[in-house]
Design a binder for these strands. Structure first.
Length: 267
DNA sequence: TAAGCTCATCAAGTATCCCT
DNA sequence: AGGGATACTTGATGAGCTTA
């Protein structure tokens, strides 16, 4: 944490020295780092020089900075089960004691245009002899809708049986929501798990192009597998993410749930 | 024997048509 | 235009099968 705060301070100083607003600096960093494709590239361009420079922060050992950097990153990715999704998506989180109106306005516009950027206000607090950090998420704003528990969130939906409402099935987000969340984008390549030559290009939430033909997602899945029916989310893999759509939407739901709980738990 | 996988079934959602 | 009936599409579910 200490190291992190010092880096934050460095970034702030850098922003002040360069006279560049720090939100734009963050975007520039995200865009630059988005080009990094592999752990080796990350190690050689960033982490190894960092270890070389701040050698005293690490325990003495026989490892070279490159070996040490590679080991740290690989262990981190394995521990977080992220080795297959390494640097597939960039997220910008701006943290400061306060934000000026121009920064908030620029970030709000980016959020509105589906850029994954958040503004967190962090203020240290002292209550009696204890120190706390008060974290307040300023952007994206918490919508009233986010506090409603939807049918999908409960994991079950209601169905009419013999004139009575009964809980009978789960209802998970569908293609339109996956597009809205950016999990699938126009032009993304999808394939069916275990089926060669099943690659197709996403057109919109309704259609996908497969071998020059515009089909629904289900039609595509049925055609590739030869089955009479398919739950496409459990079979379609996004090449960009390297994961099943079902996994991706569940991860997103979990992330939303955690963020909501975090926001509700704030003082 | 438990866990995971496959795939058909069928309820729910959506689109279209037709009647008023 | 509105609403009811019908057809079509979607996808959660669970039975049966396979694997460890």
């Amino acid at each position: 944490m200490r190291l992190y705060l010092r880096r934050l301070a460095s970034a702030r100083i850098l922003a002040e020295v360069s006279k560049e607003p720090f939100e734009f600096q963050a975007i520039r960093y995200a865009a630059n780092y988005a080009k990094i494709q592999s752990v080796a590239e990350l190690v050689s361009k960033l982490f190894s020089p960092y270890i070389e420079r701040y050698r005293n922060e690490y325990d003495a050992s026989d490892l070279t900075p490159t070996e040490r950097a590679t080991r740290i990153i690989t262990e981190f990715l394995e521990k977080n089960n992220s080795d297959k999704t390494f640097n597939k998506k960039q997220r910008i989180i701006l943290i400061a004691a306060d934000f000026d109106e121009q920064t908030l306005s620029a970030c709000a516009w980016l959020v509105h245009n589906h850029v994954d950027i958040s503004c967190l206000q962090i203020q240290p607090m002292k209550v009696e002899n204890q120190l706390f950090l008060h974290v307040n998420r300023l952007l994206p704003v918490q919508k009233l809708d986010d506090y409603f528990v939807e049918v999908a969130d409960t994991g079950k939906s209601l169905a009419k049986v013999d004139g009575e409402l009964k809980i009978n099935r789960t209802y998970l987000p569908r293609m339109d929501k996956l597009f809205e969340w950016g999990i699938i984008q126009q032009g993304d390549i999808l394939s069916i798990k275990g089926y060669k030559d099943s690659e197709a290009t996403a057109i919109n939430p309704k259609n996908i192009e497969y071998k020059g033909q515009k089909l629904s997602y289900n039609q595509w899945g049925q055609r590739v597998t030869g089955w009479s029916s398919i739950c496409i989310y459990q079979w379609a893999i996004s090449q960009r993410h390297g994961e099943l759509l079902d996994t991706l939407r569940k991860e997103r739901l979990l992330q939303d749930m955690n963020e909501n709980e975090g926001a509700k738990g704030e003082p």
